[in-house]
Simulated assay, not measured.
Amino acid sequence: MIDPAAAIRIARPSRDLAAAERFYADGLGLHVLYRGEAHAPGEHDLIMLGRPGANWHLELVGGPNLISAPTPTAEDLLVIYLAGPIDEALIARLVEAGGRRVEQSEYWDRWGVTVADPDGYRLVLSTRSWSNG
C-alpha cells in the first residue's frame, strides 16, 4: 500500500527549459526548487518546480542529451483544483509567460480554463475542489 503522504514527481521532457520556467514560475507562480545541468553523457539539464513544503513537484528535463522530445496529446493534463473562480489575471500571466489558452473538452471547459504550456502540455485550472473522502 502506498503511503498517502508519499512524494509525487511528475516528470516530462521540454524543448526549452527557460520557456517552461517562465510559464510555470512567472505565469503560474510555482517556485524553482532545484535546477541542474548535465555534466556527463546520459544526464539531463533539469528544473524542478513546485511549492515549498508540498509533497509533489514538476520535473522538466531537457538539453542536448534529451532522449525523447515532448509529444503532448490533448489528454496529457496537469489539473489544479482551485475550488473557486479563476482569476483572469492568472490566465493573462500564463499567456504572457508563453502559454496559449485552448479549448479542452465540454467537461473541462465547463469546469475551468485550459492553457497549453510552451511545449504543448495542457494545464487545467479547475473551479472545482478535489475531495478524496
Rank of each mutant, 00 (worst) to 15 (best):
V61P: 00
I47R: 06
G99K: 08
A74I: 09
R100S: 13
L90P: 10
I91W: 12
L77G: 07
L46G: 08
G99L: 06
V79I: 13
G99H: 09
G98Y: 06
G50P: 02
L90D: 09
L66F: 05
A54C: 04
E59Q: 11
W56Y: 09
R51C: 07
A97C: 13
G53L: 09
L82I: 06
P70C: 08
T71Q: 11
G98T: 03
I67R: 13
E75A: 10
I80S: 09
V95P: 00
M48T: 07
E96H: 15
L94A: 08
L58R: 05
L58D: 00
L66I: 00
I86C: 07
V95H: 01
L82K: 14
E96Q: 14
D45I: 01
I80A: 14
G98F: 09
A74L: 08
H57I: 01
V61K: 09
A74P: 08
Y81G: 02
L49E: 00
L94C: 06
L94E: 00
I67E: 12
G99T: 02
T71F: 06
L77S: 10
V79T: 13
V61I: 14
S68M: 12
I80D: 07
A89W: 09
N65K: 10
A97I: 09
D87H: 12
N65T: 03
E96V: 14
N65W: 08
E88L: 13
G84R: 14
N65Q: 10
L78A: 10
A97L: 12
A54N: 04
D45F: 08
E43A: 04
L49K: 01
I91D: 03
H57R: 14
I80L: 15
L77F: 11
E43W: 05
E59L: 07
I80R: 07
I80T: 10
R51F: 07
L46Q: 06
R51A: 06
L82Q: 15
N55F: 05
E75V: 06
P64A: 09
L58M: 02
R93T: 13
R100D: 10
R93E: 14
L78K: 12
A83R: 11
I91Q: 06
R100V: 13
L90V: 14
D76I: 01
D87T: 04
I67W: 11
E96M: 12
I47M: 04
T73H: 12
D45M: 03
S68T: 10
G99V: 02
G53M: 05
R93H: 15
G53N: 04
N55L: 05
A97T: 07
I86H: 09
N55M: 03
V95G: 00
H44F: 09
D87Y: 12
A74R: 14
Y81F: 13
R51S: 05
H57D: 03
L94P: 03
D76G: 10
L94H: 10
D45A: 05
P64K: 13
A92Y: 14
W56V: 04
G98L: 07
A92H: 13
